[in-house]
Design a protein around this nucleic acid. Structure first.
Length: 487
RNA sequence: GGCCCGUUUGACAAGCGGUUAAGUCACCGCCCUUUCACGGCGGCUUCGGGGGUUCGAAUCCCCCACGGGUCACCA
């Protein structure tokens, strides 16, 4: 028995920033395709003419590229089942609409928005399911002529059969059954001739030979409508897999008020694509072993739909940060600098093209700080001590440290040795500080802490032997003098 | 409101009728240490409630509660 090639698709609508939940849907599709040697198709569902923008489509493709999610057929690269943009497939949909109309499986509806809204309100008031009554189903020729004369533009509605059980197997949820009586005749083509999502998606998935439809759970209740359409059109029904939603901290659907929700925002904050992919994969899917850090390749090897969870998952930024920090540690100094520089520019610490020396210095600063940050943007919270020679004491503890009776001896010893240093480098400063503690017979704390406060005004920060070489001889000495004047 | 989906510790979750109910993040403690961070070690009262089925239930069935989704000429 030969395995049929798995064909999955990611079909975003380009109507806004690319949501992190969309990215996860794309990722799961991609993982299954890569895992099985199948194909991932990228189709753009732009039938909402009001809200769809080219800019948004570009944004989505950019984000996908950035995440390393590649498609085998679709917009930009084409393929045997194109076009892959729904607004370019209108003629195709029309054919099937004619077929549905001709066979009596669909009909024209002349109801206005106002009429429909009134009907809906009436039903709601009676506590009944607000679904369309079907009153245009058997319109008399006279009425129809009248509506046309009035200039009404009809929609096309699908005739939903009564008393039918619509069941399908969901890879994540198991058997799901709906009652057709709960579904009113729904619009499949808008009055402007553009098909509605539920309709276009069926024709496209069928024509593009999609075998597995992996998408967010919010589409679960749309699925019975689609199954009906598959049957009416004589198409085979694909496998469905509805993955759970991503929730915010308060367990409601993730939205703006939960913080960053778009891929673009995380990118801008300085998260790494590998980390986002890793984190997203863990949201709803679980690996077999104990390891949680996976490269894309490892994810592909380990992924399986069987291990996708049914329950919704809360987006936990702390865990994302932990994962991202893991990947940041693996960066080379140059890569790290690359990530951090835009944030330093934005914060006004640097500008323009950096000289090679300055760039090297910034790189070292980033390296000194890398253990302290989870994502690139956080660099600005720690970097001030390197750029700003004037500062205030962070707190009383800092002030107190400079009241210590041993302070004069520490300063004298340090200054003396430091003056004598030819080259200010990490091992040199390390040795110097050690020599001071030894000479004065003081604990490390008695030496390091006052010097730290003298140099930065703060009680914590990066290692002194990183800090001092980066400040250099003059700035180090000058800072000590300036601070001493303040006490 | 109808329909559908879900409910294991603060979060992600493993678990598929018999386990001391994994692991990861967070948190707490200890160790390392010049601080913070990193790292190491340890801790962290978990199966929403109630009925069944069964020798035995987190696991199967029913009811309830709660959360979510959906009922558009949006996707």
């Amino acid at each position: 028995m030969s395995m049929q090639e798995i064909r999955v698709r990611f079909a975003p609508s380009p109507t806004g920033p690319f949501h992190i939940g969309g990215a996860r849907s794309a990722l799961f599709n991609w993982l299954l395709a890569r895992k099985t040697g199948g194909k991932l198709i990228l189709r753009v569902e732009d039938t909402d003419l009001e809200r769809s923008t080219k800019e948004s489509e570009e944004n989505i493709k950019d984000a996908l590229h950035w995440l390393g999610i590649t498609w085998d057929e679709g917009v930009d690269i084409g393929g045997p089942y194109g076009p892959y943009r729904q607004t370019e497939r209108l003629a195709i949909y029309r054919q099937y609409t004619d077929q549905l109309l001709a066979t009596g499986q669909a009909y024209l509806c002349y109801c206005t928005d106002e009429e429909l809204e009134a009907e809906r309100q009436a039903l709601m008031a009676k506590n009944e399911m607000p679904c369309y009554s079907g009153r245009c189903k058997n319109l008399s020729p006279d009425d129809e002529a009248r509506f046309i004369a009035e200039g009404r533009k009809p929609t096309v509605r699908f005739k939903v059969p009564a008393n039918v059980e619509i069941g399908f197997k969901d890879l994540v949820r198991g058997a799901v059954v709906f009652d057709s009586n709960g579904i009113g005749d729904f619009v499949i083509v808008k009055s402007d001739g553009i098909p509605v999502y539920n309709y276009a998606v069926v024709i496209d998935d069928a024509l593009m030979n999609i075998t597995h439809v992996i998408r967010a759970e919010e589409h679960l209740s749309n699925t019975p409508r689609q199954v009906l359409l598959y049957q009416a059109l004589g198409f085979p029904v694909p496998q469905f897999a509805h993955i759970s939603l991503i929730l915010g901290k308060d367990r409601s659907k993730m939205s703006k008020r939960h913080g960053a929700t778009s891929v673009e925002q995380y990118r801008a904050l300085g998260y790494l694509p590998e980390a986002i992919v890793n984190f997203l994969a863990l949201l709803g899917w679980s690996p077999v072993g104990e390891e949680e850090i996976f490269s894309r390749q490892e994810l592909i090897e380990q992924f399986s739909m069987e291990r996708v969870a049914k329950n919704p998952a809360v987006f936990d930024v702390d865990k994302l940060n932990w994962i991202n920090a893991n990947y940041m540690k693996k960066l080379s100094p140059e890569e790290l600098a690359e990530m951090v520089i835009p944030h330093l520019e934005a914060a006004g610490y640097i500008s323009g093209t950096l000289s090679p020396e300055k760039r090297a210095w910034v790189t070292e600063v980033a390296v000194a700080l890398r253990e302290h940050i989870s994502y690139a943007a956080q660099i600005v919270d720690h970097v001030d001590i390197f750029f700003n020679d004037s500062y205030d004491f962070e707190n009383d503890e800092a002030r107190m440290l400079l009241q210590d009776v041993d302070l004069p001896r520490v300063i004298t010893s340090f200054r003396e040795k430091f003056h004598a240093m030819e080259v200010i480098d990490v091992p040199g400063v390390k040795a110097l500080l050690k020599a001071v503690t030894k000479e004065l017979k003081l604990g490390g704390k008695k030496v390091y802490m006052p010097i730290r406060v003298l140099l930065t005004g703060k009680t914590h920060g990066p290692e002194l032997f990183h800090l001092i070489p980066l400040l250099g001889k003059e700035r180090t000495l000058a800072r000590i003098e300036n601070t001493l004047k303040k006490i």
